[in-house]
């Protein structure tokens, strides 16, 4: 029994008056300051305060490097068929499907052609958020096709890597992609065409131990983790803490493993300039 009765309908608040605050700000891992996300994105994911380099996804990377952000994608439809019928806690095809939904890509690399400083160039960009940027048969095939295309059309090649290495769920098939890509790079080398390798955070395992280290120039961004074995594996093997800065781009530069460490905002200019030195 109610004494009072609501006469009118409850006031409906329009959806738009809700103010969403989450995700608008981000804490910089370099300087620990709070940055407005839009400022960060406008600056190609480089902290405007301390120049800490956040990761950049494959599409943004291509937009950064190619004139007016325009490019034609190649082999966009290639997807894996699960060579081993691999199942761990989750069947491999399910993992691939959720990565495809999250990234809008079929696998962990975009291969594209566009103009870079007015020069037609083939650019491959790896996507770290697709199963750790791991290299299975699709990544292997797409990069190999890009290399063969570069040789056939006499174009320079730029590969931007970001990868944990070979894709475990494709087993030895993924290991063989290292040999396949390296073999086609030998042919590109003989064809006398430049291959610039850009190693971004992180590049490890079978990707470093194949094409990423085979550039005519090997270039990286400040602070990028680059190595063969992952830091955790090394710590477990030698049972001691790793020195600060170990396996970072600056460490590799100091040990003679990189040609240059170039800040992201200067990367395109650097690539355009060096290609100018190498090509007629």
């Amino acid at each position: 029994m109610t004494w009072f009765r609501r006469e009118k309908q409850r006031l409906q608040l329009p959806e738009s008056t809700h103010i969403r605050t989450e995700g608008l700000w981000i804490k910089c891992e370099g300087c620990r300051q709070i940055i407005w996300k839009k400022d960060l994105e406008a600056n190609w994911n480089v902290c405007p305060k301390c120049e800490y380099h956040f990761r950049l996804d494959a599409r943004e990377r291509l937009r950064l490097l190619l004139d007016e952000g325009k490019y034609t994608e190649h082999d966009a439809g290639l997807e894996t068929t699960n060579p081993l019928d691999f199942v761990d806690l989750k069947p491999y095809p399910d993992r691939v499907r959720s990565a495809q939904q999250a990234t809008g890509l079929k696998d962990a690399v975009i291969t594209a052609e566009g103009k870079m400083g007015e020069r037609a160039t083939l650019v491959c960009a790896m996507e770290y958020s697709f199963i750790g940027g791991s290299m299975g048969c699709v990544v292997g095939e797409k990069i190999t096709r890009a290399i063969e295309r570069a040789a056939a059309q006499r174009l320079p090649l730029v590969v931007v890597s970001a990868s944990g290495g070979a894709r475990m769920m494709e087993g030895t098939v993924s290991l063989m992609q290292m040999a396949k890509i390296s073999a086609s790079l030998a042919r590109l080398d003989e064809a006398g065409l430049p291959f610039l390798s850009v190693l971004t955070d992180p590049t490890t395992g079978g990707v470093t131990a194949s094409f990423a280290m085979l550039g005519d120039l090997n270039i990286s961004e400040p602070g990028a983790l680059i190595g063969f074995a992952g830091p955790r594996v090394i710590e477990q093997t030698i049972r001691q803490k790793l020195p600060a800065g170990f396996q970072r781009a600056e460490f590799l530069l100091q040990h003679g493993m990189l040609d240059a460490v170039v800040p992201r905002l200067e990367l395109k200019a650097f690539l355009v300039r060096t290609l100018g030195f190498l090509m007629g």
């Binding site: 390296s182 790079l185 030998a186 280290m213 190595g227 063969f228 093997t237 030698i238």
Partner: peptide, 24 residues
């Protein structure tokens, strides 16, 4: 391949990569 500090310093990845390309 040995995962250690010295291996990384001397370019384990580069050594392997070069072998793949040259053996091909």
């Amino acid at each position: 391949a040995y995962p250690g500090i010295d291996s990384e310093e001397r370019g384990q990845a580069e050594a392997i990569a070069r072998n793949l390309r040259e053996m091909a």
